[in-house]
Design a protein around this nucleic acid. Structure first.
Lengths: 156, 156
DNA sequence: TGTGAAAATGTATCGTT
DNA sequence: AACGATACATTTTCACA
């Protein structure tokens, strides 16, 4: 599959600037990338339309809002259920913040976040209740060294 | 360790609203949570000061900017090096977007993103060059079902 | 696609409760 | 902590290049 990059070097700079601070004014960003306010606005609008920018957002520190526990849960689907169905079901489990289908011994890898370690048990029961899922293995996060780093485009 | 939640129910609603759309106006958010524009502004300012909101940002679809490959790399530190030193070194590897210290067979779990699968080799060489790191195991992501979901506070 | 300028909207500040 | 009012800044639109 050929990589389809939907952005040029100026878009990359705009994305990097807004990734660091989503509220930098278009005038300020424009000054950095050598474009007018209106041109930056137009590019941002188009990147939103094309899905390059999914949305404007905020980065929240999970610990400050009571989400103190993280685990990665590897999931096995031996039941022959469609990955799509399982994915849809897992999307409904609010503790599952991220889901990837993976190669290897397991089929899916979920990033789970809860208030407390003891809540993992309930989440695993919810996951195992989904038809097709036969087994899970959890890797408990002791400490998150870093995450949610601002996107840096145009580097190594 | 006791959970220290730095936010009340109104803050949670503000965080949820801004997580969905970081550019919703404070007036609009205020109407939803039953507060004036100025009060929402004040609360957001305080949450930024306390580090609840790390920053305003954008969510970018990695595929549209040429980051087509994701892997989770489990890392073993048998060399007795301090986790802190290794973490600092891994922070310099730009492909490493996320790093957690974990319980189990491995000591660290990194989320790695590159343009192409073949780039993983170079990243692994960079990682293995760090003193203390003796072994890695990579889990290749075939497809990201979902990630970067807007934070939903005050649910199950 | 980009520009500058005007109109529309939103943010930040302040005196007050 | 919150409010309304106001001053200030930014976004958005538009005619034109």
């Amino acid at each position: 599959m050929q990589v389809i990059i939907q952005t040029d070097a100026i878009d990359a700079k705009i994305l990097t600037a807004l990734g660091e601070d989503g509220r930098r004014s278009y005038a300020e960003v424009g000054a950095e990338v050598g474009l007018s306010t209106a041109a930056v606005h137009e590019r941002v609008k188009k990147m939103l339309e094309r899905g390059v920018i999914r949305r404007f957002s905020i980065s929240v520190d999970p610990l400050t809002v009571g989400l103190n526990f993280t685990a990665f849960v590897a999931i096995r689907n031996d039941g022959g259920a469609h990955c799509r169905d399982i994915s849809a079901r897992l999307r409904e489990v609010s503790a599952v913040q991220e889901l990837h289908s993976v190669a290897g011994e397991y089929d899916l890898l979920a990033k789970v976040r809860t208030a407390h370690a003891r809540d993992l048990e309930a989440v695993l029961l919810q996951i195992k209740a989904i038809p097709g899922i036969t087994r899970t293995t959890s890797t408990v996060v002791l400490n998150t060294e870093f995450e949610d780093q601002p996107l840096r485009l145009g580097e190594g």
